Amino acid sequence: MIEFRFAVGDLATTSFAYSPLQEAVFSLRCLRDPARYPHHRPWLRRIRPRLEGLDRELLTAVVAPWLWVPDFLTPRPERARPSFAEQLEQVRATPAGIVVADFHAAYRAHPLPPAVARGLAEPSAFLTRLTDALDAYWRVCLAADWWPRVQSILEADLAHRGRVLAEQGAGVLFAGLDDRLSWTGSHLVLSTRDFAVPAPWTDVAIEGRGMVLLPTMFARGAQPLIDPSRPPVLMYPARGRATLSEEPPPVTGDALVRLLGRPRARLLLLLAEPASTTELAHRLGVTASAVSQHLTILYDAGLLHRTRSGRIVRYARTRLGDDLCR
């Protein structure tokens, strides 16, 4: 097991965030072992033709056989909702020695893939090739349609965790992230009983550095960084991640359709969890402006509420909307 030791005040500096760069890097696990991620199969089928024009040899080599990735590729977010571009700039500034050490730590005693072994002979040039490959992968395969849906799921997860913390406290919050986690007063304990390979350490002191909790679409359980000397991060499975592969629900209630019309009825059914206009448009295969018009009418009728995060507005059903759907 791994114990994260909290001193007085450490819990007050524990926060949530999500990372588009982390999700992009972790999505490469799908390329190495697609059977582990069934809810990403529709996306994988769509992007396979696009991968042919990318540096696939290097992108696949980023992930070790047990699905570990080098820590420097998933830097701890400096704010709750960083952009992919700003995080990629952090990676571009990684010292050469850390690039080499982190790849060896991820692969442990396992031989490095040829693409990595050759590259690490000149780590600065290798880092440029790697970050360019990740940038192209993001633009070609993720940014346009995949990330808006994933971001909506991550936002909904953060909203849910905030409610749990406010209403039930830190103990219930941590236990709800993963059943392998437990809170014991001043220690957060992570069971490692089903880790693919043994963790290289068992004890982490938070020591005023704060812990950042990051939901991810690509983990079966909570996992820390490989290097315990880095600022503390704990990744955990995002709530609702399996909905990524769901088709929009059929509208079966004739009364609901007659009352609202089919487009608004379908939107209301989709909004059991918060979603943005862009994400809803992608799911329904329509324009964002068409979705926006229907959302405004549902909001004005008291069936939806909305919250703003920066420039993004997310909608979800009110209690009246829930009752109507039932």
Rank of each mutant, 00 (worst) to 15 (best):
S186L: 10
H40M: 15
V197F: 12
D254M: 11
T216V: 11
V257G: 03
E155H: 10
R129E: 06
R306G: 10
L59S: 01
D33V: 12
V164Q: 01
R41V: 02
R241T: 06
V313Y: 13
D71M: 07
G310S: 03
T287P: 04
P200V: 05
W66N: 12
I312E: 13
Q87C: 05
E273W: 14
A101R: 13
S276R: 02
P215Y: 03
E246M: 09
S276A: 07
A242V: 14
S124Q: 14
T13V: 12
A125G: 14
V189M: 12
D145V: 12
T243M: 12
L256G: 04
R180P: 07
V116D: 04
T14P: 04
F218Q: 00
H160G: 06
A288Y: 02
R258A: 15
L267H: 08
G261D: 01
Y18L: 11
R118K: 01
R129S: 03
E23Y: 09
R50F: 15
V69H: 08
Y236F: 15
S292A: 15
L59K: 09
E89D: 12
A93V: 09
Y37Q: 08
R180L: 11
T243D: 15
E86M: 11
L256C: 04
A242C: 08
L244P: 02
P95A: 10
H104A: 11
D145I: 06
D203C: 06
V197C: 09
T60I: 12
V286N: 00
E167T: 11
E78N: 09
V233G: 00
E167C: 04
A290T: 14
P75C: 06
S27N: 03
W183M: 00
Y37N: 09
G302V: 04
F84C: 05
T307I: 13
A7N: 13
H294I: 04
A281V: 03
H294T: 00
R41N: 05
R317M: 05
L154K: 01
L244D: 10
G221M: 14
V233C: 06
A85Y: 12
T192G: 04
S83G: 00
P198K: 00
I206Y: 06
P95H: 02
R36N: 11
L127E: 09
P82K: 04
V197N: 09
L260R: 03
F6Q: 00
A85N: 02
S191N: 14
A290D: 12
E3T: 08
F26R: 13
A316L: 00
H282K: 11
S292M: 01
R129V: 04
R139D: 11
I226K: 07
T128C: 02
L177K: 01
A175M: 07
P113N: 05
V286Q: 03
H39Q: 10
M217S: 04
F4G: 00
G176S: 12
A136C: 07
L21Q: 05
L134G: 07
E89V: 09
A265V: 09
D227L: 04
D132G: 01
V100E: 13
A265S: 04
D300A: 14
L173D: 05
F4M: 15
L295D: 00
V100P: 07
R108V: 13
R161P: 05
F72T: 05
Y18G: 01
E246A: 14
L28P: 10
V91F: 02
V172C: 09
G9S: 06
A101Y: 01
A105F: 03
L21P: 08
P231S: 07
A199W: 14
L213R: 11
R50V: 09
I297F: 08
T277G: 07
Y236W: 00
